[in-house]
Design a protein around this nucleic acid. Structure first.
Lengths: 231, 231
DNA sequence: CACAAAGCCGAACGTACGTTCGATTGGCAA
DNA sequence: TTGCCAATCGAACGTACGTTCGGCTTTGTG
C-alpha cells in the first residue's frame, strides 16, 4: 500500500524472505522487527534521534550492530518505519472510532479521546513522532508528511463542522483554532504522565470542554447541556 | 547575576577581558558574541542542535572553528547561552509588561500577548528553546529549568487567579488547564509564520478568547463583554 | 544428505564531529 | 621600544558514528 517506490523495504513487504514463507519463519521475522522497533522507539523518545546510536539500539534490542541492518537498510529508514506505523495506526484508529458517529460534537469528542488514548498507550511512539517530525528527509519525509496531512485534514474537517453548526457567528481564524487544539494535544508528550495525573478519559473530557466552552463558568456553573449529545 | 557556580563563563561576565576594559574592545567582544549566538540560534532552529555542527556555525558567523572557542568553551555552553538569554528575556519581558496590571483577565491577556509577541519577534530563539529543552545536561540543564519553572509559576498563578475569580465552580484540573494553554503557545513554533497568517496581536486575542470562552458561541452570537479589541 | 538461503555476527572502514594545540597578529601599557 | 595579552587561525587529535564486508551458524527443502 505504500510502495511504488524504486527503493524498497518498508512495512511488512521487506526484501528478505521472498519465496519461502513458512509461517514460522515469517512470524519470527515480524516479531523481531517489532521488538527492535519498539526498543528503538523508547530509546529515541528518551535521548532523541540523533543521540540514539545504532550501537545503543542494537544493545538494547539484544542483537548485534550489523544484525540491525537485516531489518532496515539505514537508521533513517528505521525512524521512518517507527513514524509511519505510529501515524498510520493513529489515523486508522481515529477513522475506526469515528465510524457511525454523525453528530459533530460527538465526533470532536471521539477525536480528542482517540488522540489522548492512543497517546497514553503509546507515549514513546508519539513522543518520537511529535519531536522528530523534521528528522526525516526526502521521500521518507514526504511520506510521513502525507499521513500527517491526512490526519490534519480529518481533524480540521471535524473542527470546521463544529464551528459551522455551533459557532456560525464567530470570526476566528480556523487554522489558528485548529492548531491551538493540536498544540494542546501534541504538547502532551512534554508533561503528561498517565500514572501521576488524571486518567486519559478525564483528560480528554476536560480538553474538549475547555476547547468548546473555555475555562470560564458560563452562566450558571456546571452542566454543559450540549454534552449529552442532542439530535 | 547568574553565577555562584564553580565553573564559569556565562552571561556577560566571561573570562577573557578581565583587567583591560577599554570600552572599544569590550564593545567589540560583546558584539561578536551576540552575532555568533544569533547566527547559531538560526542554524540550530533550522537543522536542530545535534546536526548544527560547530564548523557550520563558524562558517555562518564568519569566524574560524577554533575562534568560536574564545566565546564559549563548549558547544553545550553555547546552547545554554542561547536558551538562558532567551528565557531570561521572555521572563523579564513578561514581568515588565505585567507591572501595574491588577485585573486577572487583563493579566492573562498581557501574558499571552507577551508570549506571542516575543515569539513572533524571536522565532528562531524560541524554536530553539521549545525544541531543545532536553539537549542540555547537568548544571546547564538545571539552570534553564529553573527559569522555565519561574515562568511557569508566574503563568500558573495568573491562570489560577482567573479561575478563582471567574470560574470558582468548575472542576478542571488546573495543571491540565495550564499545560493546555502552554501547549497551544509552545506549539506555535511548528506552524506560525507572522508573514503569512494573522498578526501577533490578532493571534493572541483569539487564543485568549478561545481559552476563556471556548470556540462555541455563548448564548446569542458575538460580543464577548469582558473583551474589547477585535482585529 | 547436500545445499542454498536466512539470520546473525565480529571486525573493520571512512567520515564527521567537538575540541585542543601552537603560532601569529595587533593594539595597549610601561 | 618592549612586553603582554586578547583575538584569531590552520592544522591536527581522538573519538564515536553509520555503514559494510566476509564469514559463520541455523533451518527448511529437494
Amino acid at each position: 500500500m505504500i510502495s511504488h517506490k524504486p527503493e524498497q523495504v518498508f512495512g511488512r513487504d521487506a526484501g528478505q524472505p521472498h519465496s519461502n514463507r513458512t509461517s514460522d519463519n515469517r512470524e519470527t521475522y515480524d516479531e523481531r522487527l517489532n521488538h527492535i522497533l519498539k526498543v528503538a522507539t523508547v530509546l529515541i523518545a528518551q535521548v532523541g534521534y540523533e543521540k540514539a546510536s545504532m550501537r545503543a539500539v542494537a544493545k538494547a534490542a539484544g542483537v548485534s550492530l550489523a544484525g540491525l541492518y537485516h531489518y532496515f537498510d539505514s537508521k533513517e529508514k528505521m525512524l521512518f518505519l517507527i513514524q509511519f506505523r505510529a501515524f498510520t495506526a493513529l489515523l486508522n484508529n481515529l477513522r475506526e472510532k469515528l465510524h457511525g458517529i454523525d453528530d459533530a460534537l460527538e465526533q470532536l469528542r471521539v477525536m480528542v479521546k482517540s488522540h489522548v488514548g492512543y497517546f497514553a498507550a503509546n507515549m514513546a511512539a508519539l513522543k518520537t513522532c511529535s519531536h522528530e517530525l523534521d528528522s526525516l528527509t526526502g521521500t521518507a519525509y514526504d511520506e510521513t508528511r502525507r499521513i500527517r496531512r491526512e490526519y490534519y485534514d480529518l481533524a480540521s474537517a471535524i473542527v470546521a463542522r463544529v464551528l459551522d453548526e455551533h459557532a456560525p457567528n464567530n470570526a476566528f481564524d480556523r487554522h489558528v483554532t485548529t492548531m491551538s487544539l493540536f498544540g494542546s494535544l501534541n504538547w502532551l508528550y512534554r508533561w503528561y504522565d498517565p500514572k501521576r495525573v488524571c486518567s486519559p478519559t478525564a483528560l480528554a473530557n476536560q480538553m474538549v470542554q475547555q476547547f468548546l466552552r473555555g475555562v470560564i463558568d458560563a452562566a450558571p456553573a456546571k452542566s454543559q447541556p450540549e454534552f449529552t449529545t442532542p439530535a
